[in-house]
């Protein structure tokens, strides 16, 4: 465990909790893509099946349970508890266009052709693109609440920190996982445009709004 890995995990945790708190405090999930959140719940579910088969460390297990719990709680808030505030009309990205190709790719390109390994690969690939419905929704409405942009920044930062962690691990441990690295690069690249807007607008006290 190096400092980039740890701060990456914490950044991910901050993102997830921030979103949950925002929805809870405002009693509203307006501006949040339910489809992205369902996909993140699917990502955690398919990746953390090893909770039952493989014990790594208390830290590892506890974080997995927190991610899973928060992710399901978020989906519950969006589709059940605060359903009335869910902006379904603007959440129009077709999730099947991501899930089906990603599922096919996980079958074709994986480390090992076993159920758990294919599901793990699926989760890595799906995570890399799961934010697209959310970014699409912001493009469509042309704006995002500032707290939502903090969430997105922390979520994007997490994978960027993991990229540095992988470079570190390659040099100091000789460890590398090509599937995770390629997907992690794709995932980080998808946030680049958003990072630019976040730094130039939100950090200067302006609301994130796109030109019409």
């Amino acid at each position: 465990m190096n400092v980039f890995r740890l701060t990456g995990d914490l950044s991910h945790l901050v993102a997830i909790i921030l979103l949950l708190l925002k929805i809870w405090k405002t009693r509203s999930c307006a501006g949040i893509s339910g489809k992205s959140q369902v996909m993140f719940a699917l990502v955690f579910t398919t990746r953390y099946l090893d909770l039952f088969t493989n014990f790594i460390s208390p830290y590892n297990s506890v974080m997995k349970v927190i991610y899973l719990g928060c992710s399901y709680a978020t989906v519950y808030m969006i589709y059940m508890k605060f359903k009335a505030s869910y902006d379904g009309n603007h959440d129009t990205f077709r999730a099947e266009f991501l899930i089906i190709p990603v599922g096919g790719l996980a079958f074709l390109v994986n480390h090992e052709f076993t159920p758990l390994e294919i599901l793990w690969t699926f989760s890595i690939y799906l995570e890399s693109v799961a934010i697209l419905p959310q970014l699409f929704m912001i493009t469509k409405t042309g704006e995002a609440e500032t707290i939502t942009t903090h969430y997105l920044f922390a979520l994007g930062l997490y994978r960027a920190l993991y990229l540095i962690n992988w470079i570190w691990r390659y040099y100091f441990e000789g460890f590398f996982d090509l599937i995770a690295i390629v997907a992690g690069c794709v995932q980080t690249i998808l946030y680049c445009d958003f990072f630019y807007l976040y730094i130039t607008k939100v950090l200067h006290g302006k609301k994130l709004s796109l030109p019409a």
Binding site: D50, I56, N60, K64, H111, E112, W120, L178, A180
Partner: peptide, 10 residues
Amino acid sequence: LCSSTEKDEL
């Protein structure tokens, strides 16, 4: 190519 069966990352 490293296949990591023991996945310590989250």
